[in-house]
Nucleic acid binder design. Structure first.
Length: 659
DNA sequence: AGTATCTGTCATAAT
DNA sequence: GTATTATGACAGATA
């Protein structure tokens, strides 16, 4: 068994390394020890094999929080984060896009190879091209090697799912059986190291494969010993599997339950992560062999996600559900994929991973994400954009008002760019329609006395609601909803300042007064013969309007600051907890080390004797480790004791005795 | 009616 | 000195 383990470990080390790159941990010992869980999927973010339940990763990956209103964006952000992490590993990153793993299925007897009926057997596949008639429990699979099969070939869709059958010409099967049997016997008698086998090269493989002794247990009611078969198999140098062209039917019934799901050859990462019929190998009708991996039943290479629901193609979650996943699939290598692959999140991720470093990879991703975003309600995105709950536009929009996105998208940024102030935050003033500008010709100054109003209904609607007159200001653009409301609605929603401004026949609306350039405003005040009260009124309008915008911006900044501080608090709390845990672990380790040290010291002292043959006590002596690694026994100096007359004598005597 | 939130406004300091 | 901006405080409106 040790030899088996040795060869198994050596033989699978390459494959293990490959799998480890993508987060799959191979536990060889556990398999050989009968625990039959040689493969485990890491839960880490690098585990691209997993059909990652991104919904569960939401809000805890890098503290990244996704807007709750947009579950689709969860997948988008999660996918993006994953890709970012991968990209962060270094550029260019090229993941192995193919896993050179090979499967040799046990076939009870070569005569049993035949075109399978459309029976579903115990797999969930309706019909495979070839299907073993032997009991699946007796089917065994071996890992073989062939590089000639490309991942595209293997992942080619078709009605050949997971039945796990090798289609090999009968005569070749017989030949291979004999070779394997012959080789297996040799291997049992004198195990050959991998290196030796590597040197032996193809010839030995030829001999191996050509050995004619049947391996099938169809004639043998007692299947061969598992160790024996593993010895046979593992004796093969894994790097010479490339030359193993024909697949070798083998019967390892004992292993069947454990290795029920072997891997196909040249499984791409994309294919390998597919759940269910992961290892489907599309049979080559005219070819030498056809491998169709069985539906994975055993733990070996059980690559489906920890989310068991993902094992069903129809229940894939995550980005898989996104409409563009199919598009991504189509871009890859012609391996249009089985239906189970489509919509697989991991697959999409791996598509992206595989495209890393390639030109246009980001474009592909962007196209995908663009499609995702396009399928999302723009309002959701708008909500994502606004990082605070401040409803700046809420007061300015009536029930019929356009959405915030419409306002922001149609607003003219040049408005505040000319103004030079408060450009950082959009407000309803952006959407000021030009029609709200009064006409100079119709303006006749009217005196009024009221100069101060506490107009809390100085709604920003004044900025968004059109006026009956027009304003010649060139910088003002017409808003998208200038003519939406009638005059009554306008009057109802206009602020008091706006109404008074209209009553005064001021050629500007309150909004324009607020946002117009200062030069123009001064020109307005000076050049139209306004009374001081009118001037004060217009100044108040402008002042209050600007202050209102400033207040809005200030509040938004405050909310942003609060949000940022809350996030920082969470981050620091997490860091503090982590440091506390580290300190606890360190203290625990330190205590354990101290105990070990004390134990060793006592042990050492119990073996040491002084000049008079008395044992050394740890109370009087200590062990000191010098820089060069030497350990010396030192007498504990007790100056306080030495000064005392009572305790000084025994110490002196001890010191005298010791040399 | 009490409360929370939003929003406009004022006062004031800073630019 | 003026205009503008930022911000705390206050108060009214509203849910």
């Amino acid at each position: 068994m040790q030899n088996v383990k040795k060869y198994f470990t050596e033989g699978l080390i390459q494959f293990t390394i490959l799998l480890s790159l993508i987060g799959v941990r191979v536990d060889v010992d556990s398999y050989l020890n009968g625990s039959y869980s040689p493969l485990e999927i890491n839960d880490g973010p690098s585990s691209a094999y997993i059909q990652t339940p991104f919904h569960s990763l939401r809000d805890n990956w890098d503290g990244y929080s996704v807007h709750p209103k947009c579950p689709e964006l969860d997948y988008f952000f999660a996918c993006r984060r994953l890709l970012d992490e991968v990209r962060a590993l270094g550029s260019p990153i090229r993941f192995p896009t193919q896993l050179n793993a090979w499967l040799v299925h046990q076939v009870p007897d070569s005569s049993e190879f035949r075109e399978p009926p459309n029976s579903t057997s115990n797999s969930n596949v309706s019909a495979g091209p070839l299907e073993s008639t032997g009991e699946e429990a007796n089917d065994t699979e071996l890992l073989a090697v062939d590089e000639s099969h490309t991942a595209a070939q293997l992942s080619e869709p078709g009605p050949y799912p997971s039945t796990g059958v090798c289609e090999i010409p009968n005569e070749e099967v017989e030949e291979l059986k004999g070779r394997i049997q012959e080789y297996g016997d040799e291997g049992r008698e004198e195990p050959v190291s991998l290196t030796q086998l590597a040197l032996s090269s193809t010839l030995e493989h030829e001999g191996l494969l050509s050995s004619g002794a049947p391996l099938s247990s169809s004639e043998d009611p007692h299947p061969p010993d598992i160790d024996q078969h593993w010895s046979q198999f593992l004796s093969l140098p894994i790097y010479e599997f490339d030359d193993l062209d024909p697949l070798v039917p083998q019967q390892l019934s004992d292993l069947d339950a454990n290795i029920s799901s072997a891997i196909s050859q040249d499984v791409s990462l994309r294919d390998a992560m597919v759940t269910g019929s992961v290892y489907d190998m599309i049979p080559q009708r005219g070819g030498v062999r056809t491998l169709v991996a069985r539906q994975p039943r055993g733990p070996l290479f059980r690559l489906e996600s920890t989310n068991s629901s993902n094992s069903s193609p129809g229940t894939t979650t995550g980005l898989a559900a996104l409409p563009n996943a199919v598009v991504v699939n189509g871009t890859r290598n012609g391996s249009s994929s089985h239906g189970a692959l489509e919509g697989c999140l991991d697959e999409a991720v791996f598509d992206q991973i595989n495209l890393l470093g390639l030109d246009g990879c980001l474009e592909t991703m962007d196209v995908q994400l663009l499609g995702i975003l396009q399928s999302i309600d723009p309002r959701v995105l708008e909500d994502l954009d606004s990082d605070s709950g401040l409803s700046l536009e809420s007061s300015s929009r009536g029930p019929d008002s356009p959405s915030a996105s419409e306002v922001s998208s149609s607003s003219s940024s040049s408005f505040f760019e000319d103004e030079g102030g408060a450009t950082g935050y959009s407000s309803e003033v952006d959407s000021l329609p030009s029609k709200s500008i009064a006409n100079y010709d119709t303006w006749s100054p009217v005196d009024f006395s009221e100069s101060v109003w506490h107009d809390h209904s100085y709604s920003s609607a004044a900025f968004s609601q059109p006026s009956a007159t027009t304003f010649p200001h060139k910088a003002i653009k017409e808003g998208p909803f200038s003519d939406e409301d009638g005059e009554d609605d306008e009057d109802r929603e206009l602020s008091r300042d706006e109404l008074r401004t209209r009553a005064l026949h001021v050629p500007f609306s309150a909004a324009e007064i607020v946002i117009m350039p200062v030069e123009e405003f001064l020109e307005l005040l000076e050049g139209h013969g306004l009374s001081p009260a009118q001037v004060a009124f217009l100044r108040d309008i402008r002042r209050r309007g600007k202050n209102k915008l400033a207040a809005q911006n200030c509040r938004k900044r405050k909310l942003d600051a609060i949000t940022g501080l809350q996030e920082e608090v969470e981050r620091l709390q997490a860091q503090r907890n982590r440091l506390l845990r580290e300190r606890q672990h360190t203290a625990k380790a330190l205590g354990a080390a101290g105990q070990r040290m004390e134990h060793l010291s006592r042990d050492i002292f119990s073996r040491l004797r002084d000049g008079s043959g008395r044992p050394l006590t740890p109370e009087r002596y200590t062990l000191q480790c010098e820089a060069n690694g030497r350990v010396v026994v030192q007498n504990i100096r007790r100056p306080s004791v030495a000064t005392t007359t009572a305790g000084g004598k025994p110490d002196k005597r001890k010191k005298e005795k010791k040399p």
